[in-house]
Simulated assay, not measured.
Amino acid sequence: MIVTCVLCDKKAKLDANSYQGKRLINHPLATFMCDECKVRIAQKTEQRRREGKLRPRLYHKESDGWS
């Protein structure tokens, strides 16, 4: 199955029997993001977190001891 990345519009071949392929087929609102975009977003998020520009509650949930 051919899928398109939602950010960079690159076409990628994905196995329809893989977990990600089945997820895209069975859930029409699910989107595909290529590995390069995932890495780029992770790097930029980590950089923003280190610089203090990302609010802590968005990326880290503290345990309150009840769960």
Rank of each mutant, 00 (worst) to 15 (best):
E46H: 05
K11Y: 04
C37W: 11
E51L: 15
M1I: 03
G52M: 04
Q20G: 05
A12Y: 14
L58K: 06
Y59S: 07
K22A: 00
E62S: 08
C5S: 05
V6A: 13
K11R: 11
A30L: 02
T31Y: 05
I25Q: 15
R50G: 00
K10L: 06
A42V: 05
I2L: 14
H27Q: 13
P28D: 13
R40Q: 12
C37M: 10
Q47I: 03
Y59A: 08
E51C: 04
T45K: 11
T4I: 15
W66Q: 06
G65K: 03
A30V: 01
K22D: 00
N17M: 09
F32D: 03
K10W: 01
V3W: 01
I41C: 07
I2G: 00
A16F: 01
G52S: 03
D9G: 00
R48C: 06
C34V: 02
E51Y: 07
V39W: 01
H27Y: 14
Q43Y: 01
E46N: 06
C8F: 05
D15I: 02
K22Y: 01
C5N: 02
E51P: 01
R40Y: 09
R50K: 15
L7D: 13
L54R: 07
A42W: 03
L14G: 09
L29E: 14
R49V: 13
V6L: 12
P56C: 02
S18L: 05
E62K: 13
D15M: 03
